[in-house]
C-alpha cells in the first residue's frame, strides 16, 4: 500500500505499525518502551508522529509504535510540534534518572530544561516497562508494575524475594537506564531482594547463570544437562557441526 512518509511515497505493509515501517525504511524514531520482540506498548510516548488521514486537513499525533497502517495515510516524523513534545517528555523523564548518561544525552539533543530530580524506586527507573516484558517472555512474571498514577513503580509482590524469580537478570540486561540493581559477588548474585548461587561454565569456568535459571531451562528445553555459557555453547556447537560434516 502506498503511503507518504516525510513527503516521499513509500510502500507500507497493511497492518504494520508506523514504527515498524520507519525502522525498515531507516527513518529514526526515538523510543524508550519499544522492543522489537515485544511490540509496541504506547507507554513512553517518545515515538509520537504526525499523521494525516485521507480527506483530513489537520494532522493528528499518534504513537508510531501502536498505530497500525491500514490506509493511505501521510506520516511526518520530524516537525516543530514533535520536537516540542519530545523535549517535554525527556524533561519529565530525566528527573527520574538525572545522572543517567542516556537521559543526559537526550536532554542535550532535545534542549530539555532540567527540572529538580525526584526520588524513584528503583532509582533511575523511567517506567518503560521493558523489564516486565522480558520477565514475562522468560515465562516467569516475577515483576510487574505496582500501584498506579504517580506512585506507580515496578517490583515484586511486597518488595520481597519472589518465588517466581530465577535470577536470570533478563530484566537488568534490557533496562535502558541500568536501574535494576544486579549485584554479583564471588559465586552469588543478588537481584530483586533475592540471592542466588551462580553456576560456573564447565568449559571456561566462568560464573554465567544461577542454579534456578539453569534448572528452569533444563526443565523447559531439550538441551542436555550441560553447564555451558553462551559463548562456550556456540563453540561446542560449532565443533559438533564440524564433526558431523566430516
Amino acid at each position: 500500500m502506498k503511503i507518504m512518509l516525510n513527503g516521499q511515497e513509500r510502500e507500507a505493509r497493511e497492518g504494520e505499525t508506523i514504527l515498524e515501517m520507519c525502522r525498515r525504511e531507516g527513518i529514526p524514531i526515538p523510543t524508550f518502551c519499544y522492543y522489537q520482540a515485544f511490540g509496541g506498548q504506547g507507554a513512553c510516548r517518545m515515538c509520537m508522529v504526525e499523521l494525516r488521514e485521507e480527506g483530513q486537513e489537520q494532522t493528528r499525533l499518534v504513537a508510531a509504535c501502536t498505530y497500525p497502517i491500514k490506509s493511505s495515510v501521510e506520516i511526518i516524523t520530524e516537525s516543530e510540534r514533535i520536537q516540542r513534545l519530545r523535549r517535554t517528555i525527556v524533561m519529565l523523564l530525566a528527573r527520574r534518572a538525572p545522572d543517567n548518561p542516556l537521559m543526559e544525552a537526550l536532554a542535550r539533543t532535545y534542549s530539555s530544561p532540567r527540572l529538580t530530580a525526584i526520588e524513584v524506586e528503583p532509582p533511575n527507573c523511567i517506567l518503560c516497562g521493558l523489564c516486565i516484558h522480558a520477565c514475562e517472555e522468560m515465562g516467569r512474571t516475577a515483576i510487574w508494575s505496582m500501584f498506579r498514577g504517580i506512585d506507580k513503580r515496578i517490583g515484586t509482590p511486597y518488595d520481597e524475594a519472589s518465588e517466581d524469580c530465577i535470577g536470570c537478570a533478563a530484566c537488568a540486561r534490557i533496562c535502558p537506564t541500568q536501574a535494576i540493581n544486579l549485584e554479583e559477588e564471588g559465586s552469588t548474585r543478588r537481584i530483586w531482594n533475592k540471592t542466588f548461587e551462580l553456576v560456573a561454565c564447565q568449559r571456561c569456568g566462568k560464573n554465567y547463570t544461577t542454579r534456578e535459571e539453569l534448572e528452569y531451562l533444563w526443565e523447559r528445553t531439550e538441551y542436555g544437562k550441560e553447564k555451558l555459557c553462551e559463548s562456550c555453547r556456540k563453540k561446542t556447537l560449532a565443533i559438533n557441526m564440524k564433526s558431523f560434516q566430516q
Binding site: W144, S145, M146, S162, E163, D164
Partner: peptide, 10 residues
C-alpha cells in the same frame, strides 16, 4: 502470576 494479582490489589 502472583505479581499480577498483587498488582491488581495495589
Amino acid at each position: 502470576p502472583v505479581s499480577r494479582v498483587y498488582a491488581m490489589a495495589s
